[in-house]
Simulated assay, not measured.
Amino acid sequence: MISLDDFWVMNDQLVPMHVAIDGEGQIINVGPTMQKVLGDSLKAGISFLDLFDVQRPRWVETAEDLMKTAGSKLHLQLRQEPHTRMKAVLAPLPVGKGAVINLSFGISVVEAVRDFALTAADFSHTDQTIEMLYLVEAKSAAMQASRQLNLRLQGAKIAAEEQAFTDTLTGLKNRRAMDHVLDRLIATGKEFALMHVDLDLFKQVNDTLGHAAGDAVLQRVSAVMVDCVRKDDTVARVGGDEFVFIFEGLMDCERIEGLANRLIEGIEEPIRFGKDICRISASAGTTLSTAMVQPDAAVLLNQADAALYAAKRAGKAQHVFYREGLEAELVQNDSAQPPADVVLGQTGHG
């Protein structure tokens, strides 16, 4: 007949997560895995219920109640940190000898392995826990790789979209971006001001000093433009030396006039290119989205263009607001030859 000591040795191998109790509920033997879990809390004469809170069945309060749960599933929680939740089944020993309680971590196994530094050796060879842990780790690794891939793809998408909406020379928005902003503002019913700016004397820079000088001038002018506007305003380069400003929510003509004047003054500052000094200016025309009952992007752009043309005709380096009938006035007053660098509805390089 097998001795009790031999029985516990065999039980430790087959059921490493067991706790054996006597008839009074005191712990008389603990499997090697449960020794890791309980650690210093294991003391001579300690009761099972001192270490575990039986959460279900709720009526279990004493060792006698615990013995009555034989064959039923128990829901437990460690009373000590980290308060790991566990499941168990109690199997009675011969009469008067107590019971063996076989425990498992259930869905808390991942946290338990981490909290108690458990390995495959801490589980029964027939326990599917290790296989489940491998699947959990594989899933976690796959999800992490998927997240990293998604982040890279998202970053690439943002970079591609940014590049598609950016003028490569100046770093400003391009015509495509301008169209996108105008469509959004009109679709959402937002009020905005639209300013068309054209550089004066820029063609002479290209003709006399070359395109490298022209590129340097455009980059400097772009920096001036960005400094003159608000953070959320849109500045787009829509042609060689043509720019469009979109001021969302800015309908104060006095403020717009002041901004245009600061812009023109900033652009008139001499720009050094090597040993040469480049001198240019700018003309600007502005229209408001409220100039139309139902704003239309193409019409607003034509209105701003007409106002820009009026500024050019008035002597350049000026700013003009669009007013109703301005196109007719320009045509009527255009009996003389218009400036060589301007054709109504189509500004060119100044």
Score class of each variant (00 low, 15 high):
325 G>R: 09
275 K>A: 14
198 D>H: 04
8 W>F: 15
3 S>C: 05
345 G>T: 12
266 G>T: 00
31 G>Y: 06
85 R>G: 04
275 K>F: 02
235 V>W: 03
337 Q>C: 13
221 V>M: 04
120 A>G: 05
173 K>H: 11
68 K>S: 12
86 M>H: 05
221 V>Y: 03
87 K>R: 12
249 G>F: 01
48 F>H: 06
159 A>T: 13
308 L>K: 01
289 S>W: 05
164 A>W: 08
140 S>D: 09
339 P>G: 12
296 D>S: 02
220 R>C: 11
29 N>F: 04
271 I>S: 04
339 P>A: 10
150 N>P: 01
32 P>A: 10
78 L>F: 11
23 G>L: 11
4 L>F: 07
344 L>E: 07
164 A>V: 03
283 S>F: 01
343 V>G: 09
33 T>A: 14
16 P>D: 00
327 E>I: 15
310 A>W: 01
146 S>H: 13
183 D>T: 12
321 F>H: 13
325 G>P: 04
231 K>P: 02
7 F>S: 07
166 T>A: 08
348 G>D: 08
34 M>A: 07
102 N>H: 11
156 A>P: 02
68 K>V: 02
64 E>V: 14
216 A>C: 09
184 R>S: 13
195 M>D: 04
274 G>F: 05
15 V>Q: 14
30 V>G: 07
309 Y>I: 02
54 V>H: 00
255 R>E: 13
116 F>R: 09
256 I>W: 01
228 C>N: 14
349 H>R: 13
196 H>V: 06
119 T>F: 07
174 N>V: 08
269 E>L: 14
180 H>I: 01
25 G>M: 08
176 R>P: 00
